[in-house]
Every structure is written in structure tokens, then in C-alpha cells.
Design a protein around this nucleic acid. Sequence first.
DNA 1: CACAATCGCGAGCATTTGCCCATAGCCTGA
DNA 2: TCAGGCTATGGGCAAATGCTCGCGATTGTG
Lengths: 319, 319
Amino acid sequence: MSQSRFTPETTRLDDAARAGWLYYVAGNTQDEIAKKLGVSRQSAQRLVSLAVSEKLVKVRLDHPIARCMDLSGALSERFGLRVIEVVPSDPSVPELLTGIAIAAAAVLEKTLKSPDEKIIALGTGRALRACVEQLPRMDCPQHRIVSRLGNMMSDGSATPYNAVIRMAERVGARHYPYPLPVVARDEEELRVMHGQEAVRHTMELCTRADLTLVGVGQIGLNAPLRVDGFMTAEEMEALMAEGAAGEITSWVYDADGRVMDCAFNRRVASAPLPVPGSGPVVGLAVGKDKAGAIRAALRGRLINGLITDEATAERLLKQ
Amino acid sequence: MSQSRFTPETTRLDDAARAGWLYYVAGNTQDEIAKKLGVSRQSAQRLVSLAVSEKLVKVRLDHPIARCMDLSGALSERFGLRVIEVVPSDPSVPELLTGIAIAAAAVLEKTLKSPDEKIIALGTGRALRACVEQLPRMDCPQHRIVSRLGNMMSDGSATPYNAVIRMAERVGARHYPYPLPVVARDEEELRVMHGQEAVRHTMELCTRADLTLVGVGQIGLNAPLRVDGFMTAEEMEALMAEGAAGEITSWVYDADGRVMDCAFNRRVASAPLPVPGSGPVVGLAVGKDKAGAIRAALRGRLINGLITDEATAERLLKQ
DNA sequence: CACAATCGCGAGCATTTGCCCATAGCCTGA
DNA sequence: TCAGGCTATGGGCAAATGCTCGCGATTGTG
């Protein structure tokens, strides 16, 4: 029962959780919390804000906002979607990920709560990462989380937006990282990589996934592929000239959502995109720059589900 | 697409949801929200607080607080529980229901997310009511929600703490209210009531419930049975003298958790308490006054699950 | 049509909160 | 052991928030 012999970090988060509870659930003022926990007012404030910044406090909004419902209905009808969520936008922060992250976490949670074994396949990226942060801690040893693409640069260093490991540790599921770089140096190297037993097994799991969640990347000078260093500016410009519209787990596709036959794609090591009609494949994306990429992916049935925000949804429907 | 032709209430809640979203999810200040929604700062404040008071904003805390974990472990071991949740207490508001309500809603949600048909049986009371308020809106036509007891006074007026109807409309499930008063006037009337086909069907559903959630009432002058007018002060005093320790769905039991053979129980119209070993039967209760009632119920295996708070958990273990 | 009751709004003010800063305690490494 | 740096603490202050009050509009009623 001695709970003070833990690491300071544990105790500190514990206190933060307690402070957050007293603040958000019990509705205390920070002064009252300070008295109850025996610390100064300022420390209580710090604990509460720590609870928020450590994402211990999860807020969700439970009301079907009419405008969002309208938009999701329209999108669903236009593109024949199996999963659709439209969350409110903040006009002044159009790229805010929190909203779609919460919505996507709810979708994941639904699958995770199933008692039957499920396979969940994930892409990478900022949106996926934010989504995983919104998941509650759970204990789901029956499920498997599998990555659809590598999380290494070509030099072996790790990319920062790894979602699978984080998710697996959070929900207590087995996980299958994808032990490859994102792009191979050449086709020969790729052949060798794909020959590995572990890689083949992981790719096979991806094809059987019960839920696939991927980010949608735009093409352009601010594209994730470019910013995160998987592609030089020249390569990007060449792709733009060839009519590339977007990218999902590094597979570059054109405005009709067809995966392009280009030099870059021939080096992409990610699992092949799922065929339409298997499980739900849900894209996760917001932002003005992404509308084109999302529309193309929907048109080509590369994804059959979408989680986005009002502003992006409107942009998708306009035209 | 004209969303302005709804009732003012709908629009108002819509705005409230939007304001709440901008405040809690996007992290805007109320000034910014006011500008974005085109209202005054004060109106924005009102919208945010409306979103809170209408329970559109749900906060949950996702951290295993060590002390609570210790207590739940100890309770679980001591009483052999199938479900156990201990939430933090606010020492200055020992009867605060929000905490256990959130925890209980999470338990319900887990069952509701099942794709298979489930039967959920509920008691009544303030705690149950608070719990249902914490449920998100869902669409679960596959499940059935059934009441274990009536929600009428003997004169036919409704009691205020009806959980079943509220829950069913919130989660979109079929529901089976219990069309009887809580206590019959005499044994003869009870026999007639229990002869009704609908009542027998509802009671039969209760015995097959996959999850039963009930409040635990104490015995005494502040007891719910007494305060809500189901029992006169004299009857209550008589029961106390006979050694009554608590009450679940109006069935009064003694300190060993045995349902008593007394005049009152012979008039109780509620479904018989579930036999141990069927589904999980979860009790929901906090408060100094309730510790005795809870302990007796646990001892007699009237419940095999418990959702309570730290302070009450400590009291249960002490002794 | 006039009147009364009710409701929502915004001004003003007290409280609460977030944050910066000076300081004190603590760890680290020589 | 001590110097140097690092982190946590609480004071103080500006910003944000919650609340009350009076006003004007709207709705219902005689």
C-alpha cells in the first residue's frame, strides 16, 4: 500500500490525474484543489495543466451538430462511404488535428471493444499519431495492430510519427511493426526486403485487416513525403508534373485515384493498398491543401471511409 | 440543407455544442468563440456553460490512480467481484455522483458496443439516473434495456429517477419499462399485478440479463425508500429494529445480505433479485451512510460487481 | 389592442486562472 | 566539499471567466 515508493514521474502523474479529476469532474476551483492536495495554488494549477498536456483528460462532445451531419450525409452519398465522420472546424486553426483525432479514436475504440480477435492496420503520420494519443488505456490482448509501412528513413533512423507501437502499448495488443524503410534505394533492394519472411507475414496480415486507418498526404512542396525527407524537391516537382494528386502510406496516385506507375512508387516498400471491398479503409485528413488528395483517393476508391472536418468536407463537396 | 428551420432549442444546443467544441477541444478563449459565432462574449460564455450543464461535454480521466487501483484490488479479492471500479473522491462533496456515474457509463458502453444482442437490466435511483446522463448517444437497436422495478408511486404518479426510458432513447435500444408501482398495497394486489403477461415477460427478461446495474440504498431516516415516499417513518423504524441493513430495487436485506422475510418485502413488486452466478450484477453507490448497506450486499452476494469511490471503498475495507 | 410576464442580451464587477519571474532547494561533477 | 547548473516554488499581475443586474424585445393573455 505504500504508493510513495514509485518513481517521481508516476507520483506526479498520479497527482496530476487527481487534480484533473477534482477540477474537471468534481468542479473544484484550483484553490480548493490546492488545499485538498496540500500544495500551493500555483502547483495545483500546474498539476491541472499537466493533466491536460499529458492527455490524461479526454474531452468529447456528444451532440450531433446539424451542419456536420449534413456534410457527412452528403459525402457518404456522393462517394459511397462505409465510415464517415465530420467534426467541427476552428476557422482560425484549420489544420487542428485534435478533432479528427478524437473521432478516429472513437472508431478505433469501437473495434477494440469487440471480444473477437480483430486486425487493425495503420499508416503513419501526424494525424495517426494524434489519434493514438486520444485512445484510452485498455487491455485488448485478443487484437493485433499491424503497420502498413516502415517507420525508418533509408539510413535506419526512426521516423517520429510511429503510431503502431504507441497504440499497441496503450491498448495492450500484440503488434507487428513493419521492419523496413519507407522507400528502398532501388528495385533490387526492395525485392530483397520483400523476400523476408517477417515482412511477408506482416503484409499478409494487412490484407486481412478488419479496419485500416491511414493518413492522406498531399503532393507539393509542403507535402509530408517532402517535409519528412523521403523525397527531394526535384522528385516532388517531377511527380507534380506527371499529375500526382496525393499519397497514402507513400503510394502516390493521380487525380483519379489510380496508383501511378512511376519511379518513386517502384521503390515504395509499404504494403500494397487494400483492394476496395475488403474491410473498411478509413482516411484521416484535414486541411485546405489536402482536399485534392482526399477527393482523388475517394474517387479512386483507395479509401472507403473518411474522418475530416467541416471546412475540408465543404471543400470536398464544392465542385 | 436549411438547418435554421428547426426548433430554437435544437439550434441553441447546436450552437452550444459548437461553442463547447471550440472551447474544450480547439482551446479557444470565449472571446474568440464569440467572434467566430458572431455573438457577444457573454453569450458565448452562456453557450459554453449550457454545453456543460446539458452534459454535451463529457470529460473522462484516463490514468490509473495508484490509490484507486490498490483499493479496487483489495475489494475484488475480499469479495470476489466480477466488476470493480473505484474512482477518486472529493473529500468536501462525499456524495458526488459524477465520478461513479462516468465509470458506470463506461461499463454500460462496453456492453452496448457489442454487436451481439444484449439484455441490460437497470434499477432506479439518483446514481443510475446520473449514470445514464453520462452515456453518449449511440445507435444500438440490437440491445434491450429492461427495468427491474416500477417507476410509479402507489397513486400512479411517476417517480423522478427513471433511468430505463432515458437510457433507451439515448442509445436507441428497445426498452421494457416495468408497468407497476414500486410497492403494492397488499399481497393480493401484488398477485394480480404479477399475473399480467407483460409483467411476467419483463421479469423473465431480467433473469436473462447480460448486465444488471442497480443502486444500493441504505436504511435509515434519510434512506431513499423513506425520502422518496415509499415507506412511512414508522415502517422504516420497524425495519431498522428488525436488523435491516440495506435495500436493492426495494428488496430489503439484513446485515448478512439475506433478503428479509418482512411485511414490506411481501408487498415489493420489483423483479426478484438475480441469483448469484448468472450475469454480472453491479452495484452503484457512494457515501458514508451507504457503507453498511454495500458491505451487506457484497457479503450476501446480492451483487458481484461494485462501482464506488475511494472514501467509500476505504470504509468498506476498514473492519 | 394594451398589458403583463418572460426571456435573452450586454454592461460591469468580483473571482479565478495562466503565466512570468525571482528565489530557494537539490543534484552533479570535479 | 563546493561550485555550477537545474528544477520546483510561490508572489504578483494581467487576462479570462462567471455572475448579477437592469433593459428592451417578444410572446401570451385579457
